[in-house]
Nucleic acid binder design. Structure first.
Length: 563
RNA sequence: UGGGGAAUAGUGUAACGGCAGCACGACUGACUCUGGAUCAGUUAGUCAAGGUUCAAAUCCUUGUUCCCCAGCCA
């Protein structure tokens, strides 16, 4: 894969291209995607994955590692490691045999800590967490030196070794870098390098009771892996001087860190903290709830990897802290699904339609096109008979002028069926609900063709043969939140106040074509005129469950909204 | 009030001293056996004020607004 010459590159790719040209890394391009295994991946991570793996793939010989930044045993679990691997793979990326863990480097990191102590660049500090905070100063006031800052190398070596051997309780001591307590960059005010944590690690077990901080791990991990471009999000910009300091202090290979803005989307939340809260508080049914912006949620919802990748390409990469309109994501989704999804008919809210002049026991097999965007997809047969179901929305007792569907005396085309003209309808006087529509058909319009008399109809509606349709449950989803920015709450409010109570609607009396009886979880379809649907893993042998991935663009709904 | 970043149509994103372009959205219209898709068109922008220059989104000065940093989280 390579990039065309004259297209404009985002600022990260421009830097990579410039480095390639200047020979800064001898023509190497080596990136990495470095998740912490403490949660599920979401679409924001997809942006980073596409960037890192994308840049590697676009450059001859380019590589991208998958590295788990697992320096905090209290929060990390194998379950997350597995889900992350599955999601990255599903998105279409391959890290070959380069699956690394920061925990693989714990021995090396320990050696480096020792080296820094010997060089007088690190010391063991006995301050409590609270004292450490007090000594750090504030954004505007410098901090004070720790009283333990000037311990001898021997004492530091001894204490650190004893921290390592488990002699001290959690939180009693830390190893700190000796930098500058008056530094305007808070990260440089003698940052903690190691803390005592008597906790089992998901990979190293009980081997360690001291764990390196992320800041003392990340830059060196990149260095060990000979990463050329260490791409991360904006909040780590302030940490770059510290990574540089460690790498210079250690005199090791120096990757180049480049920061870009993380992804924000309207009508949803993206932080791990909030997503976790949605799951634990039961606002959604799990990490893979189709309303979640997690990769597994989007997958279950029916998103394709292609759609997500296309989206990530379009949003670009920059340093401006932006929020992307979720409609762009939906556009990319429809763009892909339109090309790839087989068409099928499904009736969400059934209304019986009886064709009074159609033979009682006749069943015709009508030809239907599987995908007008893809001639190779072929055709299928759909059974047609006297009693059908149509969509409740497709009949109006007293239709307005611009309504093209069925109403008393009106004629429409039944897709791939016949022209039918409404002659009568039955209404439940108690509820006011129309329960049955009667019509006659024109035998000269078989297959839905225009009749020889040149008569035309404005509307075409979908239908299902009552005797042949298969029952299904359909779950309709809407935006997770009611506000573009869910954190926009009055004083004392919480983002959950903006959760959309109608984000899920379950319809249990839906009907689909008999051809769908054998559909398997994950299969995607377009229900004509309605949207894209995907078979949910909750489906069983006798009960199909569909998720509505996204609706089709709906001009009529727009007209109605305007009134 | 310290330090680090960032500001271009409604939303994103290009233009790297030389015609402010593209995408999404919105709005028209054409076409259509999906009110889908497709096609054509319209809409709308350089944070502000000065300065340099034949020429400034771009360079300089001053200001404004927004984001990040005071975890023994990442």
């Amino acid at each position: 894969m390579s990039l065309p010459e004259n297209v404009s590159l985002d600022f990260v790719r421009s830097i990579v291209a410039a480095d390639l040209k200047s020979g800064k890394y001898q023509g190497r391009v080596h990136t990495r995607f470095p998740p912490e295994p403490n949660g599920y991946l979401h679409i924001g991570h997809a942006k980073s994955i596409c960037l890192n793996f994308g840049i590697a793939a676009e450059n001859e010989g380019g590589l991208c590692n998958l590295r788990f930044d697992d320096t905090n045993p209290c929060k990390e679990e194998v379950e997350y490691v597995e889900s992350i691997k599955e999601d990255v793979r599903w998105l279409g990326f391959d890290w070959g045999d380069r699956e690394y863990y920061a925990s693989d480097y714990f021995d090396q990191l320990y050696e480096w800590a020792l080296q820094m102590i010997r060089d007088g660049k690190a010391y063991v500090c006995d301050l409590t967490a609270e004292q450490t905070r007090e000594y750090r100063g504030t954004l505007t006031a410098p901090g004070k030196n720790s009283p333990y800052r000037d311990r001898s190398v021997e004492e530091n070596l001894d204490l650190f070794e004893r921290m390592h051997s488990g002699e001290f309780p959690d939180g009693s001591r830390t190893l700190r870098a000796k930098i500058d307590m008056a530094a305007p960059n808070m990260n440089l005010r003698d940052p903690v390098m190691y803390r005592i944590l008597h906790a089992s690690h998901h990979r190293t077990g009980d081997k360690w009771c001291i764990y390196p901080m992320y800041d003392f791990t990340h830059g060196q991990s990149d260095s060990i892996e000979r990463i050329t471009h260490s791409i991360c999000t904006l909040e780590f910009e302030n940490h770059r001087p510290l990574y540089d300091w460690y790498i210079d202090a250690l005199g090791i290979y120096h990757p180049q860190q480049i920061e870009f803005a993380r992804l924000n989307l309207t009508y949803t939340v993206m932080s791990k903290r909030r997503l976790l809260e949605l799951v634990t508080a039961g606002h959604v049914r799990g990490w893979d709830d189709p309303r979640m912006p997690t990769i597994c949620g989007l997958r279950r919802r029916g998103y394709s990897p292609e759609a997500i990748r296309g989206f990530c390409e379009r949003i670009g990469v920059a340093k401006f802290n932006s929020t992307i309109d979720i409609q762009l994501l939906e556009h990319c989704l429809r763009e892909d699904l339109n090309k790839t999804s087989p068409r099928v008919m499904g009736v969400l809210r059934p209304l019986k339609l009886v064709i009074d002049n159609y033979p009682e026991d006749l069943v015709e097999q009508m030809d239907a096109v599987n995908n007008p965007e893809d001639p190779k997809a072929g055709t299928r047969k759909v059974p047609f008979s006297r009693e059908l179901y149509i969509e409740q929305d497709d009949f109006l007792e007293d239709p307005p002028k611009k309504y093209f569907r069925l109403g008393p005396g009106r004629e429409v085309r039944l897709r791939y069926g016949y022209f039918v003209k409404c002659t009568d309808f039955v209404k439940d006087e108690a509820t006011g609900q129309v329960t049955e529509v009667h019509c006659t058909y024109d035998p000269e319009t078989r297959g839905g063709d225009n009749p020889p008399d040149g008569r035309k109809v404005k509307g075409t509606i979908h239908w299902l043969s009552a005797a042949h349709a298969v029952k299904a449950e359909v779950r309709l989803y809407d935006h997770l939140c009611t506000k573009e920015d869910p954190s926009d709450v009055p004083e004392g409010g919480h983002f959950t106040d903006n959760l959309n109570p109608k984000s899920l609607e379950v319809l249990t009396e839906c009907l689909v074509e008999p051809s769908l009886a054998s559909a398997a979880p994950g299969d995607r379809f377009q229900f004509e005129r309605q949207g894209y649907f995907c078979v949910d893993p909750d489906s069983t042998a006798d009960r199909l469950v569909f998720n509505r991935t996204v609706t089709l663009k709906d001009t009529w709904a727009k007209i109605q909204k305007r009134e």
